[in-house]
């Protein structure tokens, strides 16, 4: 599994973190000099868990109704914010500056 140190090497990485199934922040790293702290990361983790749960419900319903496959189980959720982007998979995530965000590289690193 890719460690947090490696996630912090993604372009524009501001923080890398782990979270529980309920969204509580676990191990994390924050780039020095930034505005993020553990409390805001903890809230962000809850946002990620909430949206992965919503997307899972949607994928389940969509696949039942349409007969299509390929969305379930949800592998990740990304929030594109005003300045920052957060990419999260099952229990880990990374925050990147919008201008440098490389979504594909982030998902690949989180899957590793």
């Amino acid at each position: 599994m890719t460690d947090l140190q490696t996630l912090m090497k993604l372009p524009g990485a501001l923080a890398a973190f782990e979270f529980s199934d309920r969204g509580e922040l676990g191990a994390h790293q924050i780039a020095p000099g930034g505005k993020l702290d553990a409390d805001s990361l903890d809230l962000l983790c809850h946002v990620c868990v909430a949206n992965i749960a919503i997307a899972t419900m949607q994928a389940r319903g969509w696949e039942k109704v349409t007969g299509a496959q390929g969305f379930y189980p949800i592998q990740g959720f990304t929030l594109v914010g005003f300045e920052w982007t957060a990419v999260a998979t099952e229990n880990r995530g990374v925050v990147m500056a919008n201008e440098q965000a490389d979504y594909e590289q982030a998902y690949a690193a989180l899957a590793g």
Partner: peptide, 10 residues
């Protein structure tokens, strides 16, 4: 919105 989706799917 979520209730709408529940109705839509079920």
């Amino acid at each position: 919105a979520n209730a709408d989706q529940l109705s839509m799917f079920t």
